[in-house]
Design a protein around this nucleic acid. Structure first.
Lengths: 245, 245
DNA sequence: CGAAGTCTTGAAAAATTTCAATTCCGGTGG
DNA sequence: CCACCGGAATTGAAATTTTTCAAGACTTCG
């Protein structure tokens, strides 16, 4: 099953063998944890590990869905693009999370690496099979789908009704939580560029930049460089983001 | 189990007995269809039919989730409201659709009737029990959750990147599909008011109204009255809505 | 038939985007 | 090791869009 990856992403990804799920860094987080040992073995037979360069395309909107992916390191983005290049980053996907549980025949969004990343690719047929044989697996998937649905509803409220600084504050708070950054650590990395943030928050890069600047001027955050934020006033940040948390 | 409804919504809803699921008008659409006969019987024992007045509150954000609902007639809205009254209608729920599959302990949004409606209320515990006993049921729920997730992603793109007339056109196209209006029938009813549309599309009522007027002036639609639209130029409407369809 | 609420329309105000220019940063090669 | 190049980020000013504020028309329903 490796060949079609190397064919599609020849310059961007390579498959990495052998695979040792028992040592997987995200095993407890990932869907794999929901499976009893025999099922996990079955799963392993259907999995390929992939290494992705920054901006590598794992899938393109419109393509048939052949695999589901579990991220083990780095960060992915799910992207929808209109004919006139308007773009929306539907979600950023962090290690331990899963892409492609939908039963759609074709991808509804592109899947791209934000930074160099590693993912486990599962054959859809294998997943379907496991779903039928192990109710606990399906249960876990439903649970995750509901969580994602809640996230999407949060995102809708953010896009529909929050001001740019509120959107940015909410985004930072959510990202910190997704990355499991402890509250006492003020530092955080922003792996994605301003363009991705803008397309995630429904703004322009300029407005995102100005919102960063505003938060900095108000003493809420510091920006050592464009890819690092320091939370100086957590209370103020949460106040701004309060709508969604 | 009827008492807590009549207690909560005394002036707004009343429970209607007896219940005859075999004659349910949305049986084929509803989740109930996913259950084998013995399970359907089990389900019936946990269900109450409710009649709701327009604007009746079926659930309020923050309340514990005790029931899931299947709409049999009318229309519901899922609403999130911020402390300062900013509001977002996350979704309109039509007959055959299901509310409350999430396993959250508390409601994340209010559930309200847009127009006089009828719903079947299921006890959460009963649902959980059926999920465990009938994998097909869980499978159906997951399927629906994925569909809703796709819808939510569509909504995110709409809110993030479409112009007001594009949002309105997309909304009309989607609503026609949800209501199963055949393509050759130009007429459609808009049960909800402008405020609900505005809060669904992330706009103000004024902007919604101006967008309707714009579509009318361009000959795309006619507006016999505020609650009825006639599609005069389907091609133009779909062109505007093309981003999402 | 009348009152209340809803919808539409207009004009002013505010916010965001667009366009343009400058600065900054990381990577590359001398 | 440092200077330079190119993409990314920031900043400013003008233009556009949407909201806000205000008033009037229209339904809808009692």
């Amino acid at each position: 099953m490796t060949s079609q990856f190397t064919a599609r992403c020849r310059q961007h990804s390579r498959s990495v063998e052998p695979l040792d799920c028992a040592r997987c860094s995200v095993r407890d987080l990932a869907v794999c944890a929901a499976l009893p040992p025999p099922a996990a073995d079955a799963l392993e037979r259907h999995v390929t590990s992939l290494e992705l360069q920054a901006n590598a395309e794992l899938a393109r909107a419109g393509q048939p869905c052949r695999h589901a992916y579990s991220v083990t390191s780095g960060m992915l983005r799910l992207v929808r693009t209109l004919a006139d290049a308007r773009r929306q980053v539907v979600a950023f996907v962090l290690p331990g999370h899963f892409v492609g549980l939908s039963e759609h025949a074709v991808h509804r969004h592109g899947v791209e690496a934000v930074v160099p990343s590693r993912v486990c690719a599962f054959e859809i047929d294998g997943i379907r099979d496991l779903r039928e044989r192990f109710p606990a697996f399906e249960h876990t998937l439903l649970d995750r789908a509901c969580r994602e649905l809640d996230d999407a509803h949060d995102a809708m409220l953010l896009l529909a009704r929050l001001s740019p600084p509120e959107r940015l504050a909410s985004f930072l708070v959510r990202l910190r939580r997704q990355m499991s950054i402890p509250a006492h650590d003020p530092r955080m990395a922003l792996p994605m560029g301003r363009g991705d943030i803008a397309d995630h928050l429904g703004l322009t890069v300029e407005t995102v930049s100005r919102s960063f600047t505003r938060l900095r001027e108000q003493g809420v955050i510091a920006l050592p460089d464009p890819h690092h934020v320091e939370i100086l006033d957590p209370a103020a940040l949460h106040e701004l983001a309060s709508a969604l948390h």
